[in-house]
Simulated scan of single mutants.
Amino acid sequence: MDIKLKKVSATNAKTHKPDLKIVKIIRKNNKYYIKVKNIGITTSNKNYLGVYSKGKLISKIKVKSLKKRFFNCFKVSFQ
């Protein structure tokens, strides 16, 4: 299965660049592990991560606020 991930929101107002960045994706069978890191200079707001397959949104993951330089990992399962 070929999937694409898109960050739905969260930008830094001064630079217009995303504060949250997908830094790693690992695939194990039907599961994807996604690591999201706050690369901004302050704590990020709550956001959503959109998971797409063949151009269609299949999952929307809520990302809690993250302190600068912190990260969070998410697991997405497919069938």
Rank of each mutant, 00 (worst) to 15 (best):
F71K: 15
D2M: 07
S59D: 11
K31L: 09
K37W: 05
P18R: 06
L66H: 10
I3R: 04
K54L: 14
S77G: 10
I58Y: 06
R69V: 10
I22A: 05
V63N: 12
F71D: 15
R69E: 13
I25H: 05
K54W: 11
T15L: 04
K67M: 08
I58C: 07
N38F: 05
K60T: 07
N12R: 06
Y33L: 14
V51N: 04
L66W: 11
T43R: 13
R69G: 06
K68W: 04
Y52G: 02
G50A: 15
L49F: 01
N45F: 09
Y32W: 05
F78W: 00
S53V: 13
A10M: 13
N38I: 01
K31N: 11
H16Q: 11
S9L: 13
K4P: 10
I58Q: 07
I25P: 00
L5I: 12
N38H: 02
N12P: 01
S44H: 12
K6D: 09
F71M: 14
G55C: 04
S53G: 07
T43W: 09
V76E: 02
Y33S: 13
F71H: 15
I41L: 14
N38R: 02
K37G: 01
K17Q: 13
K67S: 12
D2K: 06
S9I: 13
K62T: 11
K7V: 10
F74Q: 04
I25F: 01
K68Y: 10
N72K: 12
L20F: 01
N30G: 04
L57E: 08
I3T: 00
S44E: 09
S59G: 07
S59T: 00
S44G: 12
I58M: 10
I34A: 00
K21S: 02
K54I: 13
Q79D: 12
S53R: 09
V36P: 03
K60S: 11
A13C: 13
Y32K: 04
D19R: 12
N12W: 02
K46Y: 14
K64H: 08
C73P: 00
K14N: 12
D2C: 03
V76T: 07
I34S: 05
T15V: 03
I34K: 03
S9T: 15
N30D: 01
S77P: 00
A10P: 05
L49I: 04
R69Y: 06
K24Q: 06
L20C: 00
I3L: 06
I3V: 09
S9K: 12
L49S: 03
F74H: 08
N47K: 08
Y52D: 06
L20R: 00
K68C: 11
T43A: 13
I26G: 00
T11S: 11
M1L: 15
K75M: 14
K62P: 09
Y48F: 15
K60V: 06
T42Y: 06
K68F: 11
V8I: 14
H16W: 07
K62N: 12
G50T: 11
R27Q: 11
N72R: 10
V36A: 05
I22F: 02
P18Q: 04
I26N: 11
C73S: 09
I34D: 03
L49N: 04
I39H: 08
K62F: 14
K46D: 15
N38A: 03
V76A: 02
N45C: 09
N29Y: 09
M1D: 14
N72L: 09
C73T: 15
